Computed example of a mutant assay.
Amino acid sequence: MAQSRRMLVLRAVVEDYIRSQEPVGSTSLTRDHDLGVSSATIRNDMAGLEDEGYLIQPHTSAGRVPTEKGYRYFVDRLATVVPLSEAQRRGINSFLSGSVSLKDALQRAARLLSEITGQVAVVASPSLAKATLRHVEMVPVAMTTLLAVVITDTGQVAQHGLAVSAMPAVDDINRISSTVNEQCSGLSLSSAAEKVRSIAEEAGFSTVHEVACALADAFASMALDERANELYMSGASHLAHSRSLSDLAPLFDALEEQVVLMKLMSNLSEETNATGVGVAIGSESHTPGLLHASVVSSGYGHSNAVADHAQDGESSSSSTDAGEPVAFVGSIGPTHMDYLATMSAVKAVARYLTAFISENGIQDRPAADQHHSH
């Protein structure tokens, strides 16, 4: 019993410190929380929590503040992330539904998330490595060059030059395009590459063998493109208000290191708990500039979960496991951030981006299909 009450005391300290950012003493805990024991007992519990490494006492103060271990215990006990209020969800929806393109949606999502949390928001655009093929067009652009225009399930358009020794007839190019679109739509780019190689060997396609092989190579190289194309960031100015200047220089350096940040957030968004949100506190990020910061991240755009959480956005967390995320959305703030609010906001924005991608995917599909049905 003492242990579980002690952990209730820890939780109360974390909640109070997140709210006030002042060291928490036993008197205020007794006053503000119904812990059902005397302040002397709470003092003992706090001393025990300090011995166990969950709390620390700043020199000048009678109160205590949580350590990384204290925050970690607190975050791990947040079994469910409270959905945002109806008004907040409507706000997100109306803000993002005005997006004219995927890029616009991602920029808006970063801006919105930083507004909601008052922290730095980071949104990555999907990496081609995780995309599936929706449609490909091949257009002759020079005597010995075709341009392959590849549209993926996330609505991204990638272009790739295909060099050939001699240009085949237009009808032959259209025929291989149609076949590739019929047989490869919905495949990952690496599977599409293999499929196109086998199509290239079929008897009827000898005149476009070289084109097919070049297209397969293009798919294969896109499939290896692990880096998400871009990172959209918003809200760095919020940090300047919440941190002492000595913390800020290494933090801004860390935010500049996009590759490091991507790796960290991408890993985090894949190592989530039951809530579908990953959290790294302080040194857990293994990034020197983020020593006094926490990072909250969630994946979005699960490529094979099409309409299931477009409906309302707050169905069970299991819908988020329907496929691999194609990219992530995250928030970076001080270790004393409001974890519950941040996790809820990150999760909600991730859900809306997933819905945005899948809805746009569905709407564009018939047009792409008419394009190559003969």
Rank of each mutant, 00 (worst) to 15 (best):
A169M: 13
R89L: 14
V157L: 12
G155K: 03
F95T: 10
G186Q: 05
S101F: 05
D104W: 01
E86W: 10
V149H: 01
I173N: 02
G70M: 07
D153Q: 12
T179N: 11
V75E: 03
A142H: 06
L78G: 04
A169G: 09
G98I: 11
V136H: 01
E182W: 00
R175D: 12
L189P: 01
V82K: 07
S114L: 08
I151Y: 11
S188L: 03
Q159I: 10
S101A: 11
I151Q: 10
G118E: 04
C184F: 03
A193S: 15
A109Y: 03
E182M: 09
L102N: 02
V75D: 04
Q183K: 15
V123Y: 05
V170Y: 04
R108L: 13
T117S: 11
S99H: 07
E182I: 12
Y71D: 06
V82N: 08
R77F: 00
M138K: 04
R111F: 00
A166Y: 04
K103I: 03
A193T: 08
S191Q: 15
H160M: 14
L102F: 06
L102P: 00
L147M: 14
L102M: 09
S178E: 14
D104C: 11
T179C: 13
R134G: 01
S165Y: 00
T154W: 01
N181K: 01
A158N: 09
T80P: 01
M167L: 15
I151D: 08
R111S: 11
K69D: 11
V139R: 13
A110L: 03
A142F: 06
K69S: 11
N93V: 05
R90T: 13
R134S: 06
Q107M: 12
I151V: 15
S125C: 07
R134E: 12
D104P: 07
C184L: 10
H135Y: 08
V150D: 00
I92E: 02
S178K: 09
I176D: 01
N174K: 15
F74Y: 15
A124N: 09
G186S: 10
P126V: 08
L96S: 06
D76S: 15
V123H: 03
A158K: 12
G155E: 05
G91A: 09
S190R: 06
Y73G: 05
V100R: 15
R72T: 06
M167R: 15
V157R: 14
S185E: 12
M138H: 04
P126D: 08
E86M: 12
K69G: 00
Q159L: 12
R175K: 13
F74C: 05
H135M: 00
P126S: 09
L113S: 01
K103M: 06
S85E: 15
Y71M: 07
M167C: 14
R90Y: 10
V123M: 10
T152S: 07
S178F: 02
L187G: 02
S99I: 08
S185L: 03
S191E: 14
